[in-house]
Amino acid sequence: KEILIVQPYMKHPLQNRWTLWFYKNDKNKPWQANLRLVTKFDTVEDFWALYNHIQLASRLMSGCDYAVFKDGIEPMWEDNRNKCGGRWLITLSKQQRMLELDQYWLETLLCLIGEAFDDYSNDICGAVINVRAKGDKIAIWTCDTENEEAVLHIGKTYKERLGLPMKVVIGYQAHADTATKSGLGVKNKFVV
């Protein structure tokens, strides 16, 4: 008799469980009502099953966001883990939507789920992509603007992972400043 040995497939666990959020801009509702928790994942395989299933960011309607945050952290300034923090912000031109937006967003996700920031990965809260007619934005959110060592390490590593040229400068803004910004724009607490 032939014995068939079936090897169970073991999924690869991630260091953290992550939540995917989706935001669709419906001006008739308060913004909180437009924010939806889509699903959670904590293995490499489940990440890909989700990523391959959902719409590419470049194909979302203007006014939509994706956000991927550690389980238990909501993608808003007010969350306890965000309110003292800030974000490394990547602003893209309209032309970059078709060329680089999806590639940058995937690389951002791979940095998150792969724990690409060494000991400072604990400072990571999540990442947001805003699809907007006036120019798309991608940002990595960290929990503490005062933890300069962590913020700078995350910024340098992130810039490298995106393959941004040295001459391109990215800025880190505290959420508290972004929340109270006047029309003039938000000052950068750090740049790399």
Binding site: H12, L14, E45, G114, S121
Partner: peptide
Amino acid sequence: DKKKYDREFLLGFQFIFASM
């Protein structure tokens, strides 16, 4: 021990079930 995965390792799994 921290579960760290580099991008090449992660990318290797994108279509793993399709190839099974």
